[in-house]
Computed example of a mutant assay.
Amino acid sequence: MTFSLVARCDQTGMFGVAISSSSPAVASRCSFARAGVGAVASQNVTDPSLGPLALDAMESGMSAWEAVEEVKQRSRFIEYRQLLAVDRDGNAAVYSGPNSLGIWAQTSGENVAAGGNLLANDGVPHAIVDAFIGSSGHLGDRLIASLRAGLAAGGEAGPLHSAGMKLVDQVSWPVVDLRCDWTQECPIELLVSAWKVYKPQLNAYVKRALDPRAAPSFGVPGDE
């Protein structure tokens, strides 16, 4: 019911996850990232505990592949899960259990991994990774372009209803956490609209958190 990618920007070290599904609020259950550590997507009959577990393993020094293997050893019902991870060195790993739903597929490249289940066809993750590798610019733009490429390649077998994107960079909180939790429209395009609004303000929100004295004006009535 889901297709996603996890990725690292080799220019900035920023990590991100982008995901879409026919299920509601998919990003709230499946997207995990930690600045300086990595990004993880846990999906397919989702166990949200796998995301923090994989990030903890990578923070302890494990590679993405080692972290995925650690999660496989420590988790129950792993045969039902899909797990995607990318680490601080750009290593990417994907595991899909044999009980993944419908047509499922996975692929990875340097700084990126993609996977999905209940897909329209098994070429969707390859289209996502190809789009990411062939792109440049801000990681958020690259994630959304890759998600769109997955949709154009067929996406999920059924209609999509939710989507999200999470980015982390140098601070302890996500610098971007945008979601469309339910819609009858295309959630990916609604995510695109939210990103167009948020992207120009991203750095200002970080500055306000770190030092409000040096922050740009808020741009609201009464602000001077």
Rank of each mutant, 00 (worst) to 15 (best):
45 V>N: 06
39 A>K: 02
138 H>K: 06
119 L>V: 06
41 A>S: 15
3 F>Y: 15
28 S>T: 12
135 S>D: 12
49 S>P: 00
54 A>Y: 03
100 S>P: 05
78 I>F: 15
34 R>E: 13
40 V>L: 09
135 S>R: 03
124 V>H: 11
96 S>Y: 00
51 G>Q: 06
37 V>N: 01
70 E>V: 13
9 C>L: 03
48 P>H: 08
12 T>W: 13
102 G>S: 10
26 V>I: 14
79 E>S: 13
13 G>F: 00
55 L>H: 04
71 V>D: 03
37 V>M: 04
83 L>G: 03
26 V>T: 06
36 G>F: 10
113 A>E: 10
114 A>R: 04
58 M>R: 02
111 N>E: 12
28 S>G: 08
93 A>Q: 10
66 E>R: 09
26 V>R: 02
15 F>W: 06
76 R>C: 04
101 L>M: 15
106 Q>L: 12
103 I>M: 12
46 T>W: 00
136 S>G: 13
102 G>T: 15
90 G>A: 07
69 E>M: 11
40 V>W: 05
104 W>M: 07
123 G>Q: 14
85 A>L: 10
60 S>I: 01
60 S>L: 08
70 E>H: 13
141 D>Q: 06
87 D>R: 12
23 S>W: 09
28 S>A: 14
113 A>M: 12
114 A>H: 11
67 A>R: 04
108 S>V: 15
104 W>I: 11
87 D>F: 13
139 L>D: 04
122 D>S: 14
96 S>L: 07
61 G>N: 10
103 I>Q: 12
92 A>H: 04
82 Q>W: 15
37 V>E: 03
94 V>D: 02
79 E>T: 13
108 S>K: 11
125 P>Q: 15
53 L>V: 06
6 V>L: 07
21 S>C: 11
